[in-house]
Amino acid sequence: MSAPDLLVVRGLVAGYGATPVLRAVDLTVPAGTIAAVVGANGAGKTTLLRALSGMIRPAAGQVLLAGEDLRGTPVEQLVRRGMAHVPEGRGVISELTVDENLRLGGLWRRDRADAGRALDEVYELFEPLARRRRHLGHQLSGGERQMLALGRALVGRPRLLLLDEPSLGLAPRVVARTMALLRQLRDRTGLTVLLVEQNVRSALAVADQGVVMSLGRVVVAAPAATLRDDDDLRHAYLGF
């Protein structure tokens, strides 16, 4: 099982202002797998996602998506390359309805018929959203907002999904359901996921690959199972 690498990151340096948060990050994510980036607060996990989607401009390094260099691609073009980024706090637009939020995820697509099909699929996948189409974003519960943000990304039929802290502020039951859904999407549609998590246990439980970041660098990249089972590694980098 040697899938081609969908995402290749080489020597990525990025940050805010003069001090880089990321210092030469290297990372590869094979197509159709889930990679979980874990690490302490301030390790640069969120910055990594923001640099990948172009929300902050990398100072150096290379990001290849399916072999294409993403350097200089405007943020709003990345959905067209197949990258979807669900930001921290999830970015549901409170003033828009559920249906409007979801449709927004597919508006850029030329293939209107398939955008409509993708929307229907998301409503099938997240049945509570279908019952709340006309509700405004701010009327939803935390779990529903999570579904909405995830569903909105899926309407664009991405190849690579970047997820920032999907478990943040959610009940364990909802977290478990989200993680199960990611696996299901990977198996069924070949979706590739790069997931950033504080919740190390559930992230490593769902992921194929575990990536440990510390102080702006990747210190370990290993099969998630290895990280889970290797006590020394866990103690050294994850503190449990």
């Binding site: 989607s53 929300m55 405007p74 943020v75 709003e76 073009q77 990345l78 959905v79 067209r80 979807a84 980024h85 930001p87 970015g91 637009i93 409170s94 003033e95 828009l96 409007e100 449709r103 927004l104 995820g105 508006l107 850029w108 909105r152 664009g156």
Partner: peptide, 24 residues
């Protein structure tokens, strides 16, 4: 219309809208 939805989204949440492919 789609343009109207894009305009509203861009006004409410410019950063998220860009991630969703809206030319803010």
């Amino acid at each position: 219309t789609g343009v109207g939805l894009r305009m509203r989204a861009a006004a409410f949440a410019p950063e998220v809208s860009r991630l969703l492919g809206v030319n803010v």
